[in-house]
Design a protein around this nucleic acid. Sequence first.
DNA 1: TCAAAAGTGTTCAATGTACACCCATGC
DNA 2: GCATGGGTGTACATTGAACACTTTTGA
Lengths: 257, 257
Amino acid sequence: MQSQDLQHFIDHGHQVYLPHVSIDCAVFGFHENELKILLLKWKHLNGWSLPGGYILRTEHADVAAHRLLKQRTGLDQVFLQQYHTFSGPGRNKIQDSSRAIETNYHVVIPEDNWLKERVVSIGYYALVEYSKVTNPQPDALTETCAWCDIHELPTLLFDHQEMISEALKALRAQLIHHPVGLNLLPKEFTMLELQRLYETILDTTLDRANFRKKLLGLKILKKTGERPSGKAHKTPHLYSFDKRQYAKALKNGISFS
Amino acid sequence: MQSQDLQHFIDHGHQVYLPHVSIDCAVFGFHENELKILLLKWKHLNGWSLPGGYILRTEHADVAAHRLLKQRTGLDQVFLQQYHTFSGPGRNKIQDSSRAIETNYHVVIPEDNWLKERVVSIGYYALVEYSKVTNPQPDALTETCAWCDIHELPTLLFDHQEMISEALKALRAQLIHHPVGLNLLPKEFTMLELQRLYETILDTTLDRANFRKKLLGLKILKKTGERPSGKAHKTPHLYSFDKRQYAKALKNGISFS
DNA sequence: TCAAAAGTGTTCAATGTACACCCATGC
DNA sequence: GCATGGGTGTACATTGAACACTTTTGA
């Protein structure tokens, strides 16, 4: 960001963005049998945070979340779900993040500036295909945007540790009533890969035979006909999601106990 | 509200309250086998709304919701659940409600006043015991606060029709995984009353014998020993909730299919 | 031919569903 | 007695969980 743009953002940002409200997104991906989450390493603070930002004055929060994710991942059409709004008055994001701006740009933000006021944050979680996020982009105040293993999280800033826990809870609850996978897996996948995804999210192990029967019973999968060859052992079938049936299952709900 | 208080609220309310964020509560009660919701009839607008209000600058949204409900119902310790945040930029609450202030108090609110800016609203639903809300209080801009049957809703202002639909959806989802009733029924009740509550919320009919078995199987009920006499036919047992077991069930979840 | 992974089948228990039957009470 | 609602039992279907068996492939 240029310094004159920055000054404009500090002085007039509240005319463009809705003050006191922000968005934070927990972006989940699946890679090598591990659930990953997209995090940003801050430049002048000792820790990482979820990607987030402000809502435009005339913008729906859902649209803002999509816009912000597009900036970080380059992806459109991401599966996004609002799950909770965090309103603790003690959330010290404001102080910390405006301090980061001051340090980074060598400016002083007045105490009564909109960037130093309390913010309520709307939490979203997103499910994306890991391999499609090849080059996640940090923003002006962060130096790195990277996937982190959900079991090996770095130091998190603000209340983002809680945000991630709650997002995981919401994702697990969602998994029981709605199919998950279309957004996390590549177009074609094996039954075992799908099972590993479920096992990872639910943090448990599942019976291979029963998982197969249950998923096929949902009628949301179709065989692609192709089989990956060249590998050792019996080659598994490849499946893809039947988009029509998947959408129906999303709408009406399923039961994955 | 006195006119000088009002002028202070218009001019300086943004220093006390967090602007751009509000709270709306869908308060549910159960009476005569019908699910009721608490609504406010506005003075200068043709319609009703949910009770709501602003969050204090230093206040958690959950606390604000409790405070607002106490003002309307007189009740403390209400069961409250955040369920969704409504952020449509087209929510015309702002225009309408500030217009109501202008009409009611014969004042003019400047166009750039905080009361005319866009508001994002955090939606809560509450479950209360109908009989404990004996005299619900309207606020300064409303003339009536009353219970309305969920199946016979009056004209609703703003986006509150959607808020109620979503609150009902959330309540139904909650019902499947967590016990509901402690907050909606009187201390002692019959099995049939409990069944009617479930039937009303889920909008279905349930088998009497199976409902009984399932609920007793949850181990959250205990017989009070007493039986209401004087009525016709066989007198039913009275039950109450086992608070300890109920709390455990709330925390760990149950399965009511 | 053997190990490893995929695919299928079978058994048993738990749960859900439908419904029948008896019991208690006031008229 | 009998209508009405409360309380209980049973039979059957559906589902879930555990696990054994067969098939296919590459080494």
